[in-house]
Design a protein around this nucleic acid. Structure first.
Lengths: 366, 366
DNA sequence: GCGCATTACTAATACGCATTAGTGATCCGG
DNA sequence: CCGGATCACTAATGCGTATTAGTAATGCGC
């Protein structure tokens, strides 16, 4: 009646001749002369009071080191435990050929913070290039292998994200994202930063300030406008629609005439928002140059963010910098908090004011 | 004798009240009126010829859709005895603050190739910052949670690498590394590339060519010299020690006098190797400029590699480019081959010749 | 010196899926 | 019309770990 239990499974390659396969807890147990369960107890972060003698613990740990044992992440997860892996998912390639568009600056902080907290990172690439889970409707499912996952970029499909969140899987989105109920995110505090820039200009004596923004409903844009207007209000300056120039194509619509018009109306400072393309700043910068404005003598310019690479050589714009590494780190902190069930961490990261050289005292009127 | 099999496991949260946890294959099977195995067969990419009727397949797929079934990656990978994870280990931080020193260009290719082959990447950092596995003497042990691991940079401790290799753990080193028996690596084919550059110069009529190299025993250096000499030989030009100028500090030792001496001896072309610092090229470039050489009219210059960033603006040097993304991709291919037990892939990656503008026809003699 | 704790383990089992060895049907050739 | 082949599917089992119920072995109080 004895069934042959140890028969080799045909589908499995029995490790290339002579080589030992990766060690399992069972092998550690054998070497230490204990049971597999004991190995698990020694290694695990005991929740209940299972007591292990010092002697046994030492034997097990020695065996672990001797064999170079490392727990299998899939098995840990299946058994409802942690595996100390945090996922990083980007819908587009994490390392695009064009460095400019990469998430590199964020990853700097992500890697550091993750390492500091004892997590390793798993890169899930969900791009059209194929990806491990094909590009099917469940491209995001793979991330469940990790303890939690960070999402980069605004392209993460809402439906699948919602599903992960609904299942209680720890998820953090890098970049504000309110429309998805229950989705945790971290983002830059554009409101305060924009407000600070306006305060700076006001302190320099500017009394009329105009914001140039693109036609965009992203939170990043509306937040800046919000902060801008708040800054005006705090300084007791005129706000309202007249203070905001909104254009879908600023490079064409922000004409020299329009700029002269503003100057004639007494506007002495201009603020542009930062966008992917940097068009608002480019347009503002170009028009000012065209009109022959000597900046910051005749008028001041400020940029709510960083300049596009092609304008990086120009005099440093007054404005603020988005601390990308810190954002990445904050995202990891929040994810770690979710994973371990702690209280959620702070979602907003402060931007740093950049004095720059495009803003100066308001010119004397007339 | 009946054991209570379905008793709830205390450690598990029984899905937030009301909401059912996500479906399993078993539930799909129940709904479709088939067995769990059948569901697995329908969903899996059958390797063996298990045949399923169209009728059944449809029922299963309908049930899958109806329940919103998504496979659990932990279970899949555990059962398949394959995590589909490739490790990427760098001794220094994978994402240093200074992008210049990063492995970014390699990672571009690594990510693409890994994604195309269905692998996800696990990032391991061996720096002192810790990572999940502390920095102990077994810092490398953690990479075993992946199916195999790629090593970047020459700092990977030999002893531990040897251990991994000896244990049969699939390892690939990015960059040639012969001293470690059995270590698989991929590297650029500097020999052929250097040879090609010499051939190009010879075809332009140059009859005496000198190589400027630093004092370094790295394979990357010796390979270039090897290819350089081979190129001379093929072209029937004078080689030997006189054709190679080796210096630990070329910027000081490659003086104007020395350069003039070579020119007087009839040397019309100079080749520098690329190094971390780019000193050989910088020295050569500087001396030529100092002596007042009109390049490429009076003499030709070539660089065996890419110029350092600070000299990137100068006229593009004739030479070759190291296809870093391709190198990364080749490394992944080799690692994938090792993991799946296939035949090893090609370790050498061809460099691409870069015409540049610093080499031209040899000047008429006298 | 007997019951009851406590200590230090081990046996058994579940997690969700993939794989394979069956197992009835049905078909086919001679 | 019978032995074998093919088809379509299911039962059973294993992957590696975490958890818990159980079990000897000892200690302790009265």
């Amino acid at each position: 009646m004895e069934e042959p239990r140890k028969r080799a499974r045909p589908g499995r390659v029995p490790a290339p001749a002579g080589r030992t396969s990766r060690p399992r807890q069972a092998e550690v147990a054998r070497l230490a002369g204990v049971s597999q369960a004991t190995v698990s107890l020694v290694l695990g972060a005991r929740k209940q009071g299972a007591t292990i003698s010092e002697e046994t613990r030492r034997k097990v740990l020695d065996a672990v080191r001797a064999l170079g044992y490392v727990p299998d992440p899939a098995a840990s997860r299946l058994a409802a435990a942690r595996n100390n892996l945090l996922g990083v998912f980007s819908f587009t390639s994490t390392f695009p050929t064009d460095v400019q568009h990469s998430y590199y600056p964020f990853l700097v902080g992500v890697e550091q913070e993750a390492a500091a907290r004892g997590y390793d990172l798993v890169l899930f690439t969900g791009s059209s290039t194929g990806g491990a889970g094909a590009a099917g409707p469940n491209a995001l499912a793979r991330v469940r292998l990790a303890d939690g996952c960070l999402f980069l970029g605004r392209h993460a499909p809402a439906e699948e994200l919602r599903r992960l969140v609904a299942d209680g899987f720890p998820v953090v989105h890098l970049g504000r994202r309110d429309e998805l109920e229950g989705l945790a995110w971290v983002g830059a505090d554009y409101i305060s930063a924009s407000q600070e820039v306006v305060a700076h200009l006001a302190a320099l004596g500017h009394r009329r300030i105009v914001l140039v923004r693109e036609d965009d409903e992203a939170p990043a844009s509306t937040d800046r406008e919000h902060g801008f207007l708040k800054g005006l209000e705090e300084a007791g300056l005129p706000g309202g629609p007249a203070a905001v120039f909104r254009s879908a194509d600023p490079e064409r619509e922000l004409t020299a005439e329009r700029l002269r018009g503003w100057l004639d109306e007494g506007v002495t400072a201009f603020v542009a928002e930062e966008t992917d393309t940097g068009d608002a700043w480019r347009a503002l910068h170009g028009a000012a140059h065209f009109v022959g404005i000597d900046c910051p003598r005749d008028a001041s310019l400020a940029l709510l963010g960083s300049p596009p690479p092609d304008l990086a050589e120009e005099p440093v714009p007054t404005g603020f910098d988005i601390p990308r590494p810190q954002l990445g780190a904050a995202a990891v902190r929040m994810l770690a908090a979710l994973v371990s069930g702690e209280e959620a961490a702070e979602p907003l990261v402060a931007c740093t004011f950049r004095p720059g050289s495009t803003a100066g005292p308001a010119p004397a009127r007339y």
